Amino acid sequence: MCHNCVAGSSSGASRRSFARFLAAGAGLTVLAACTPEAPVAEAPSSSAPIPTITSEYTTPSPAAVESTTAAAEPPAQVPVPPSAAASLPGQFSLTDPASPWVVVNKHRPLSPADYAPADLVQPSVQLAASGEAALLNSTTAAAAEAMFAAAAREGMVMVLASGYRSYGTQVVTYNGYVAARGQADADTASARPGYSEHQAGWAFDIADGGGVCGFQPCFADQPAAVWAKANGHRFGFVVRYPWMFHPVTGYYYEPWHLRYIGVEAATDMVGRGINTVEEYFGVEAAPGYP
Results as ranks from 00 to 15, higher is better:
P75T: 14
P79N: 10
A133M: 05
S61Q: 09
S138H: 01
D208Y: 04
A86D: 14
G25W: 02
Y252K: 12
S124W: 03
A180N: 04
H233I: 00
V104W: 12
A26N: 13
T249K: 14
V283Q: 11
T29P: 11
Q199M: 11
A141N: 01
A161P: 00
V159P: 00
A186D: 09
P60G: 08
A203G: 00
E154C: 05
M244T: 13
A266C: 06
R272D: 01
P49V: 12
V80P: 03
A146W: 01
A70F: 11
S11T: 14
S45M: 06
S111R: 15
G232Y: 07
S17H: 06
F235Q: 07
A41H: 07
A285E: 02
F235W: 09
T276M: 08
C34M: 11
A116K: 14
S83W: 10
P287Y: 02
N137P: 03
T95S: 15
H3T: 05
P123D: 09
A186C: 08
L120R: 00
A180V: 03
E154V: 03
T140Q: 02
S124F: 06
S130V: 03
P62N: 06
A150L: 02
Y280G: 04
C213P: 02
E56V: 11
F235P: 10
R20T: 11
E132K: 05
R181T: 11
A76Q: 14
A23Y: 07
E279N: 11
T276S: 05
R192P: 08
V212E: 09
E254L: 12
R153W: 00
P109T: 09
R108C: 02
P242T: 07
V239C: 13
F235V: 06
Q126Y: 00
P82N: 07
A24T: 10
A180P: 00
Y195Q: 08
Y57D: 15
A134K: 04
I50S: 15
R15K: 07
L160N: 00
A142S: 13
A184P: 01
A207C: 09
L110S: 05
A184N: 04
H198S: 14
V238D: 04
H233R: 14
I206M: 11
A189R: 15
P44C: 07
E197T: 03
P123G: 03
L31F: 11
G155A: 08
A64C: 09
A134N: 00
G211C: 09
T52S: 15
A32Y: 10
V171T: 07
S124E: 13
R165I: 09
I50R: 12
L160S: 00
A84R: 13
A228D: 11
W243M: 13
A146L: 14
V159L: 03
I261S: 11
V80M: 14
A286H: 10
R165D: 02
P242V: 10
S93A: 05
A13D: 04
E154A: 10
P89A: 15
A207E: 13
A142T: 12
A118C: 01
R181F: 15
Q126F: 01
V283I: 13
A76F: 12
A86N: 08
S10D: 10
Y177G: 01
D221Y: 05
E279H: 12
L28H: 05
E284W: 02
S9K: 12
G168V: 00
A85K: 07
N105V: 06
